[in-house]
């Protein structure tokens, strides 16, 4: 007898992405470039985060035609984004057979109170987090993979660094805590006691955690690996650079060999301008995507 949609199958799929780069793409042509560069998966969407930020308006699940074209163009896994709490968008993506759904703060939330109950789906989900409490709540709802949020579409690594350091620092604290301290930590962090017990036992999060939101250069990607990310998502950073193919290849290689600094120097040479990027103080509180969801 075989069983589909188990935790092991859903979390295992993310384990196979480790050490890899997942790239945002908006059409089949970009998906092929990503695959040829060595991406471990692509994220199909209608607009990359920097365009969503620039153009404004409500950002929704991509036109299924785009997602379908991407799925037909590549043999690597295809992920797609659904709005936070949008049960129907998520079910549509599942019915289309996408390999992973990102319940994403990059899109305009459909529900400001409740996230999806991801345990109910056969397709696995990845969700954003800024701290161990958010991580615990998303995993509690059934997320099979995490990514630290960063600040999408900025090309500025500062928030991605902040969130990854926060999550991993909290994991280290939990691991060092006495058993009798865990319940109080659970109250303070907004994480379940059972979850914290599991983190302490494993010495790490129970699911893969990638970094996202602001990675624009090979050195940025390598930095996130250095800080303990299992892999990286690159959104606007590739197809908003001057030379997407070279950027994509260089970021893939820098992620795999993140402590080979001579190689990263070589990869970064003459790459041309990265995406221009935004300084955080120029982004108003209402425009910070990381503040969406809790």
């Amino acid at each position: 007898m075989s069983e589909k949609g188990t935790d092991r199958v859903k979390r295992g799929m993310a384990e196979m992405q480790k050490g890899g780069v997942i790239m945002d793409v908006v059409n089949a042509e970009q998906a092929k470039i990503a695959e040829a560069a060595g991406a471990t998966a692509v994220m199909a969407l209608e607009r990359v985060p920097s365009d969503i930020r620039k153009e404004g308006g409500v950002a929704r699940m991509a036109d299924p035609r785009i997602t379908e074209e991407v799925m037909n163009a590549v043999s690597i896994p295809v992920m797609a984004k659904a709005r936070i709490g949008h049960i129907t968008e998520a079910r549509v993506l599942e019915a289309m057979g996408v390999d992973y759904i990102d319940e994403s703060e990059v899109l305009t939330p459909a529900d400001e109170e409740f996230h999806l109950l991801k345990n109910d789906y056969t397709v696995p989900f990845v969700c954003g987090c800024r701290n161990i409490g958010e991580a615990a709540r998303r995993i509690g709802e059934g997320a099979s993979m995490l990514r630290t949020k960063g600040e999408p579409g900025t090309g500025n690594i500062v928030e991605a660094v902040r969130h990854l350091r926060q999550v991993n620092g909290e994991v280290r604290k939990i691991v060092a805590m006495g058993e009798d301290e865990l319940m109080t930590a659970a109250r303070d962090l907004g994480a379940s006691y059972e979850f914290l017990k599991e983190v302490k036992l494993l010495g790490r999060l129970p699911v893969v955690n990638f970094a996202a939101g602001g990675i624009a250069t090979p050195a940025d990607a390598a930095l996130m690996m250095e800080l303990g990310a299992d892999g990286v998502f690159v959104g606007s950073g590739i197809f908003k650079s001057d030379q997407p193919e070279r950027f994509a290849r260089a970021i893939v290689e820098a992620t795999a060999h993140y402590q080979d600094y001579e190689l990263i120097a070589k990869l970064s040479k003459d790459l041309g301008p990265a995406m221009k990027g935004l300084e955080m103080s120029t982004i108003g509180a209402a425009d910070r995507m990381q503040e969406r969801s809790w």
Partner: peptide, 30 residues
Amino acid sequence: RNSFGRQVDSFEANLDIQGIDEPFPAVFIR
């Protein structure tokens, strides 16, 4: 490649493996 289908078709099953006595728990992912 990917011959059992996409991720939604990924599965777990117990296998009878030659030379191994008890069933082996196997995870098939794409």
